[in-house]
């Protein structure tokens, strides 16, 4: 299982979820995608995105840089 890092810092909405979507699309099932974002909305958005797309949100850290770890279903 690979770990894919996505730097979505400085991207405004909807940049980070678009990056996440594209990364998950090209990843294998079970791969973990780590997204770093500075868009404040991303904290809630990544939760909504995972719920909607059925991918698992392994962890989510708040801060100046929001870090989300998403496992592809």
């Amino acid at each position: 299982m690979a770990e894919i890092k996505i730097d979505a810092k400085c991207l405004q909405c909807p940049g980070p979820i678009v990056q996440l979507f594209n990364a998950v699309k090209s990843a294998q099932s079970g791969d973990v995608i780590v997204v770093e974002a500075t868009d404040r909305g991303f904290y809630k958005d990544v939760q909504a995105w995972c719920k909607k797309t059925g991918n698992e949100l392994l962890s989510l850290e708040d801060g100046d840089v929001i870090v989300a770890r998403v496992k592809k279903a």
């Binding site: 909405c13 909807p14 678009v18 909504a48 995105w49 909607k52 797309t53």
Partner: peptide, 11 residues
Amino acid sequence: FIIATGAAAMG
């Protein structure tokens, strides 16, 4: 376009 792009990114 932000809504359209967001929706597309939600699949």
